[in-house]
């Protein structure tokens, strides 16, 4: 009963946000389509880019076109889920700066879920649709031998990849408790760093690879899970041969770590929260 309510109330809150958003969408239909079109357009441009490159060569660092498309599309899907269900994370800087977090601390629901769930980025729908379509298309071209185990693995890795992105979003946005600005500039620039993980990371210098594997593990949103599903191996980093596939299989652990880090930093930050007027 207690567990049910813990999960249930954030959903109620989210449903309300969604309802408000849908009302707004109906009121400003043009806006809705502009935003949807923009998010699809932005991601489509990336796809055209890959397509142009691969029309000239069969692979980049041993990755074929459709495999790279999977890496690319995983970033869209993770961002799409992040926008559609957890867009509120990006409002944290505003909430902290204006003292609006106060009321969330006075309700018997976890403040983290109140912050994260109470906004809906409808553009996430565009990302999710396009990303899903691209993954579907890729898989139909890749002739993977799907066993039950591999399907289960792929689903587990997909969920973990999404959770990694959401955890990282929360962790970077928790910087709002330390950096007093109404805009989440730091989190946003980190988000853009994540764009590096749209390609096989083996193309980068070792330091850059280490950065997005260890320091801010964006590579676990796309590159490593894809590597595990495609049974890739042979990753040389700074002259050391690393088992690429095993890194991919570690994605669930990284996801747990990132989410834990997000919650930890949020709670740590909450101790410093100064409310408004100080």
């Amino acid at each position: 009963m207690v567990v049910a309510s813990r999960i249930g109330r954030p959903i109620v809150l989210y449903a309300r946000c969604l309802a408000v958003q849908i009302k707004a969408v109906l009121e400003y239909q043009a806006d809705f389509w502009i935003l949807m079109m923009a998010s699809v357009l932005m991601n489509l441009v990336g796809f055209v880019f890959l397509w142009t490159i691969f029309s000239k060569i069969p692979d980049v660092d041993g990755w074929t076109f459709w495999q790279v498309v999977v890496i690319y599309a995983l970033v869209f899907v993770a961002e799409g889920v992040g926008s559609l269900f957890f867009e509120g994370t990006w409002n944290l800087a505003f909430l902290v700066n204006r003292g609006e977090l106060d009321f969330m601390l006075l309700r018997p629901v976890s403040p983290i879920s109140q912050v994260m769930n109470c906004a809906v980025g409808i553009n996430g729908l565009g990302n999710l649709l396009l990303g899903g379509t691209l993954i579907g298309l890729s898989l139909s071209h890749l002739h993977i031998h799907w066993t039950l185990g591999r399907v289960a693995l792929a689903l587990l890795l997909l969920v973990s990849a999404i959770a990694t992105k959401i955890g990282l979003n929360l962790a970077t946005n928790a910087s709002a408790f330390w950096i007093q600005s109404p805009f989440s500039g730091f989190a946003f620039s980190m988000h853009q760093l994540g764009d590096l993980a749209r390609y096989p990371i083996t193309i980068y210098a070792s330091a850059v690879q280490a950065l997005i594997t260890v320091a801010v593990p964006f590579a676990f949103i796309s590159f490593f899970p894809a590597a595990a599903v495609f049974s890739k191996n042979g990753w040389r980093l700074g002259g050391v041969e690393l088992p690429l596939r095993w890194f991919g299989l570690a994605t669930p652990l990284v996801a747990v770590y990132c989410c834990w880090m997000g919650v930890f930093l949020f709670r740590r930050g909450l101790r410093r929260y100064e409310s408004a007027g100080n």
Partner: peptide, 27 residues
């Protein structure tokens, strides 16, 4: 439209691809 974000994103996407910033046009 009140949705500046969507307009700005669309513009950036179009400029990015059609200016050759992403891929040289010859490709």
């Amino acid at each position: 439209t009140t949705n500046y974000l969507g307009v700005s994103w669309s513009r950036q996407a179009i400029v990015n691809i059609m200016s050759g910033a992403l891929v040289p046009i010859v490709l």
